[in-house]
């Protein structure tokens, strides 16, 4: 039986690499597989999508996966979006990178859900929020395949030395820390809103890009305008009170303003993920 998988992440989290590792591991399990990156330009921080198709016979079709049996989300903020469950097959499995148990997942539908805190695992094993391998172990646990050894073999084919060791550590922890798979607590899907995927031209709102965000201490601010002049996205407006004001839909969370503030008035805080 053919199984279609959709992977959501953002540029830099390794969604495309995750698709290749998964396809390779499935192949080592004796299956046939196909890893398909979404066409277009990939930008660091921008939401990206990749697809995997796994079958007992050679995969011959060349279309994208339109009704995935499994959806895997590498990013904790994207994990809160109903959009992730769009077009999923009935009874399909939604695996989220989330700091909360599956019982608290708000993404709804006639699907099953599981969670793993992949960002934490990645930060602790790789010391960076690259969550692709830190969720693959959980995939193996929740889905029942591919074998952990197969994923390890795929990782060692892709990476070498210390990097490979750290990633293998990440999949093992991820396997152990994956939650139970339960039916989605919310049965009726909420409103699904489109997410700006990277590409050429102008985007409407890049709020979903931020992992960290600037927080300005107005008492410390001297009004020097450094943050305003160096912001590549004009996300900082200057108010009549001679103070900066952040236009959130434009802020990608790069941290330049934090780094350039001469008096340290801007703090870079991890974006709090509201699971609403």
């Amino acid at each position: 039986m053919v199984v279609g998988i959709r992977i959501h992440g953002r540029g830099g989290q390794g969604a495309v690499t995750a698709s290749r590792l998964l396809a390779t591991a499935a192949y080592y399990d004796g299956k046939f597989s196909q890893a398909i990156p979404m066409y277009g330009t990939e930008r660091r921080g921008a939401p990206v999508t990749a697809y995997v198709r796994v079958d007992d016979v050679r995969v011959r079709e060349r279309e994208l996966v339109h009704t995935p049996e499994i959806v895997m989300v590498l990013d904790p903020l994207l994990s809160t979006r109903q959009t992730m469950a769009d077009d999923m097959a009935e009874g399909g499995l939604l695996l989220l990178n989330a700091a909360y148990p599956p019982e608290e997942v708000k993404t709804g539908g006639n699907i099953r859900v599981a969670t793993v805190n992949a960002t934490n695992i990645a930060l602790e094993t790789l010391r960076r929020p690259i969550t692709n391998t830190a969720i693959l172990g959980a995939f193996a646990k929740a889905v029942g395949w591919p074998k952990l050894e197969s994923i390890e073999k795929a990782i060692r084919k892709q990476f070498s030395g210390r990097i490979a060791d750290m990633n293998v550590e990440a999949i093992k922890r991820s396997y152990d820390e994956c939650s139970e798979v339960i039916p989605a607590p919310v049965k009726i899907a909420g409103e699904s809103e489109a997410i700006a995927v990277g590409g050429y031209g102008v985007l409407k709102d890049v709020s979903s890009w931020r992992v960290f965000q600037p927080v300005i201490d107005m008492d410390k601010c001297t009004g020097c305008k450094n943050c305003w002049i160096y912001c590549p996205e004009t996300a900082i407006k200057w108010t009549d009170e001679n103070k900066p004001e952040i236009e959130w839909r434009k802020c990608k969370g790069c941290g330049i303003c934090v780094n350039e503030c001469p008096v340290g008035a801007i703090e870079f805080k991890r974006v709090e993920i509201k699971n609403e």
Binding site: L203, D205, P232, G255
Partner: peptide
């Protein structure tokens, strides 16, 4: 005036996007 239309498609912390803006 600011003449670049933002947010654009550049990566986080893109020097070239700032070059365009300036």
């Amino acid at each position: 005036d600011e003449l670049t239309i933002t947010p654009g498609s550049a990566c986080q912390g893109c020097g070239a996007a700032l070059a365009a803006r300036l």
